[in-house]
Structure formats: C-alpha cells, structure tokens
C-alpha cells in the first residue's frame, strides 16, 4: 500500500497498519539516525531512535500536524537525545556553546584587523579539499567531537538542508541562538581545515568523542 499524502500515512500509523510503519521508517529513519548520531554520538544513537519511534507511536493520535511529520519526528529525536545527555550529565550548557571562540579573538589587532591575514588554502573548491582522504577523515572525526547542539545544528542545516525556522522547531532553540550555534560550528570547521592546510595534521587528536 502506498501512502501518497502525509495525512494518509499518519492515519495509517494511528490505525496501527504495518505498511504505514514500514513506509514511515523507510522515509525518515535515515534522517532521524543522522540527527541522533550528531547529538548523542554513534554508540547510543540507535537506542535514541528506537525510543523516538516508541514515543511517536504513543503520541501520534495527539499529533496536531502544525509541522510536517518529519519535523515532528526529528523534534522527538532531539528531545530523547537531550533527555539522555542530561541524565548522563553530558548535555552542554547553551550559554557556553554561544560564547565566542577564544581562538578567533586572538586573530585581530587592537583596531580589529586581521593580524596576520588568514592563511591561503591550496585548494579552491570543496571537492578539491575533500580529495585528500586525511582531511575527509579529519572532518568526520571533528563532527564526532563537536558539542551536541552545535553538531546537531550543523547536521540539520548543511547536511540535511533544513531551514533555520525548522531547526528552531526541532531543537527548541530560538532562531537567533540557532544562527550563533551554526556560526560557531562553521568557524570550528574553518579553523580545522586551516590547521590541516598549515600542518597536514588533524585538529581533533587531543579531544574526546561523544
């Protein structure tokens, strides 16, 4: 059975139809797991996604459909993930994540100009940069050490293409804070690529994985 409209799929899930669950899982499991990995790390991502499906199943009758089913499911992933991190005392403080990266405050002189100029990179396109396997591995590694909400914001925006408004809804963070989280994550990646360009080494070797 195909569920051509989202309403039909939701009704099918409310009725407990196997085909509806199968369709929903095929459509959304990949995005849900991808978000869970960025938020809580690879080790417990599967558990968080399974918990999400159970919570979604219990709440689907009450789903008011003010957002898409996908956004609603991703919001439950984020909630389950944050609850889990909070229980394990691993949830980062939002205030700390919004603070300026101390590295960048040292790169300007007293008049606010670059000192020295940013390092000139050798490659001139993302594909050219990623032809170096070491950098690709380093970027994958960096994603695993970025703090929870920063990594989740980066994942939802750059890798899953969600709008800032959708990300606010999913992570329950204000739009201005989402913009800052995204900017901090991008600067962190920038710094890591720059470090790799300068030294040929990855920036994450001293850090702990989620």
């Amino acid at each position: 059975m195909t569920f051509e409209t989202e309403d039909a799929l939701i009704e099918g899930m409310i009725d407990g139809q196997n085909d509806a669950f199968r369709t929903a899982i095929s459509r959304y499991q990949t995005s849900m797991k991808f978000l869970a990995i960025s938020l809580v790390g690879e080790k417990i991502a599967d558990e968080v996604v399974q918990e999400t499906w159970m919570s979604a199943l219990n709440a689907i009758d009450r789903f008011e459909r003010r957002s898409s089913l996908k956004t609603w499911l991703l919001r439950i992933v984020a909630n389950e993930g944050k609850t889990r991190l909070r229980k394990e005392n691993r949830l980062s403080s939002l205030d700390a994540l919004l603070e300026a990266d101390p590295h960048f405050t040292t790169r300007f002189d007293s008049t606010g100009h670059w000192s020295p100029l940013p390092f000139q990179w050798d490659e001139d396109s993302p594909d050219d940069l990623l032809t170096r396997d070491e950098l690709k591995l380093c970027m994958d590694e960096l994603i695993t050490v970025l703090p929870d909400l920063q990594a989740a914001t980066l994942n939802l925006r750059e890798r899953q293409g969600h709008s800032l408004k959708e990300i606010c809804n999913i992570l329950e963070v204000s739009e201005s804070n989402v913009r800052v989280l995204l900017h901090r994550a991008r600067l962190r990646l920038f710094r890591c690529i720059e470090h790799f360009q300068q030294t040929g080494e990855c920036c994450t070797s001293m850090e702990n994985k989620k």
Partner: peptide, 19 residues
C-alpha cells in the same frame, strides 16, 4: 571565500546509510 568553502565541505560530507 574560505568560509564559503568550509560550508561547501560541511554539506559534502557523507550521510549515514539507509536502514
């Protein structure tokens, strides 16, 4: 320019596999 390249790199990284 290099910040834009960084955004391009972030969006070019692989995804998790389908179930």
């Amino acid at each position: 320019h290099q910040f834009q390249l960084t955004i391009g790199v972030a969006s070019s990284l692989g995804s998790t596999g389908d179930p």
